[in-house]
Write a protein that binds this DNA or RNA. Structure first.
Lengths: 151, 151
DNA sequence: AGCTAGGGTTCGGAATCCGAACCCAAGGGG
DNA sequence: CCCCTTGGGTTCGGATTCCGAACCCTAGCT
């Protein structure tokens, strides 16, 4: 594997990476998956500045990952909820968590547990071959530049 | 699911998220998985400033995700290679790519293909139950705060 | 002796981030 | 009727971080 070069603007890893690799965005999504929906709750639970939070929520809405929706509490409030596109980021967060559990876990273990709602089993994340079903690591995968490869 | 609060410093999602959510880090890892190893190659392939690259490579080495190693070319050079801890981030990158393929792919499709080296099959990423094997979405998972939960 | 290449470091200016203060609309209380 | 509170923001000045460009150092090559 000799230093494959790809055009960033067209790479389906770098596009999401640029988005999620912005400060706070991943944390914000973690909160969203934990059920946080309101501006105030995001702000206090993550300890982010209000201006930056406004901005991040804004780009996530623009990107179609969150949806801003009015609803009636005692009066009109807004909530930010994951769209289908947003929910589809679940594997990314789970992969992150698996890695965190293994390599960065504090002594006391993870701060919350995740279990299959119906059978109680642990949640796993696996990279596998759609063809033969084998579990794959980076070494088992061949990378083929499809276009725009120069060196 | 009513807005679970967790201490950030102890959460195994936010710890890695803080690390990977730093600008450039995810892109750098993508390059690493594509086989890039040398300072110059990282710099030109990602178009990152040299000072920031030095810094990022430094923190990744500190974190034990990359290893800086001297080797003999025509003379002594250095390369940055993924450690076991680094290689273990593969599922994160794959999950990112799957999502990118589905939601941000340019017209022409992804810029490179990934296939199982031995059977040629597509690479998949799945969140599933370790107990019953069922494929899981966010909705199928119950979150249980294990400690430090306050509201 | 001078040139080149890899791998950095060191600037000063530009873009981001932050905390704190402010704004505004809609109830609620007195 | 007036003031207070709450959610959801916006605005501001100062502190960080980022960036590009220039510089440095070492070995080999010519």
């Amino acid at each position: 594997m000799a230093h494959v070069k790809v055009a960033d603007e067209l790479c389906t890893v770098s596009l999401p990476a640029a988005l999620l690799g912005e400060r706070w965005t991943l944390l914000l999504l973690r909160q969203a998956f934990l059920g946080t929906r309101r501006f105030e709750d995001f702000q206090t639970s993550m300890d982010i500045s209000r201006s930056v939070l406004t901005e991040r929520l804004g780009t996530l809405v623009e990107e179609g990952i969150l949806r801003r929706e009015a609803y009636k509490d005692v009066r009109t409030r807004y909530e930010y909820r994951l769209t289908e596109k947003g929910l589809d980021l679940y594997p990314v967060l789970m992969a992150l968590r698996k890695w965190g559990d293994r390599w960065m876990a504090p002594e006391e273990g993870p701060s919350f547990g995740l279990h299959h709602r119906t059978c109680g089993g642990d949640v796993g994340v696996h990279v596998s071959c759609e063809g033969c079903g084998a579990e794959l690591t980076a070494r088992d995968v061949r990378v083929t530049p499809l276009r725009d490869a120069r060196a």
